[in-house]
Amino acid sequence: MSTPTSTGTTTRPTTAPAARSTERVTLGKALNLGLRRALEGDPTVLLMGEDIGRLGGVFRVTDGLQKDFGPDRVVDTPLAESGIVGTAIGLALRGYRPVCEIQFDGFVFPAFDQITTMLAKMHYRSRGRLSLPVVIRIPYGGGIGAVEHHSESPEVLFAHTAGLRVVTPATPGDAYTMMQEAIASPDPVIFLEPKARYWDKAEVDLGRTTGDGLDRARVVRRGTDVTLVAHGPAVTTALRAAEAAAQDGTSIEVVDLRTISPLDTATVADSVRRTGRCVVVHEAPTLYGTGSEVAARIGEACFYHLEAPVLRVGGFHTPYPVSRLEHDYLPSVERVLEAVDRSLAH
C-alpha cells in the first residue's frame, strides 16, 4: 500500500472543476446510479427485494442505497417472491413506484402468478382507471458458472403476456437511462439485467435521465451482408462475431433489440431490407423464442427482400445444462458465424 508522500501541501485548484457528467462505469454500477437518481428525483420510488438493503444485493446493484435512503425506501423483504410483487402492486395502488429485485432469473416463478394475472392486467381490467408503475428487475442469462436456476433466460414467458413491457439493456449507457425510463413508465416493466455483463465497462453520460426510450431497437454496428439481431448478453456475442467476420470480408450489421415487448419490428425490417439476410441470436431456447417471433414478422414484412430464411441461434430445448457444459449451450461467436455462413450460402 502506498503512503501519502506529501501531507497538507497538495496544491488545490482555486475553483472546483466542472462536474464531469461522463464516467466510465460498469453496467452494474450504471444500474445502481440509475436507481439512485430515481430515488433522488421521486419520493414515491421504493426498492424492494431480498438482501438489497444492508448487503446491497447479491450483485451489489443496490449497494449503498439503503444507507442513503433508509430502510423504508430500500426495503429488505421477507424471502417470498410472490409477496414482494404482490405487496408492490398494493404499494403502486397507493401511489408508490416500487422497483422489485428478484434475486435470480430462476426464482421469479413464485411471483409469476402475481406478475401475469395481476400486475399485467390491472390497467386493462380497470379500463384504464388504475395503473401499476412497477419495475421487476431480474438478473438473467448464463455464462457465470452458476448452479441451477441461476442462469436462465425467461423473457418470452413475460413477453407473451399482454400488459407487460419487457426490456433488456446490453450496455452501461442503456442500463443507466433505461432503468430511469422503466421507473418513470406508467406500465409495469420486466427489466432483465444481463448478469454476465454486470462488470462490462463503458463511458456513461450521468447527466441524462432519458435515453432512447423503451420502444425502440438500435443498430449498433453498420453492415451490408447480414443482419444479426440480438438482445441482452447476446449483443456482445453478436458484435464479436461481426468483428471476426469482418476479418474475412463479411460485413455484418448488428441490431440490439433493447425491448422484447413491444418488439420493434420496423427497425429490424429496415435493416433486413438492406442486407437481405437475418440471423437472430439469444441465450433463451430457440423453440417459441424471440427469434421465432422475429423470423415470423420479418418473413411477413421482408419476404421479397430475403435472400435466405431467417435463422436462429440460441439455447436448446433442454433445461439449462450444468455449468461445465454451458458454453456449449450458449450461442458462441463460432455458432453465430456458422449460422451466418449458412445464411450466405443460400
Binding site: S82, G83, V85, G86, T87, A88, I89, G90, L91, A92, L93, R94, Q114, M118
Partner: peptide
Amino acid sequence: LHATGYAM
C-alpha cells in the same frame, strides 16, 4: 398481498 402492500 395487494391489501398488505397498500397498507404499507
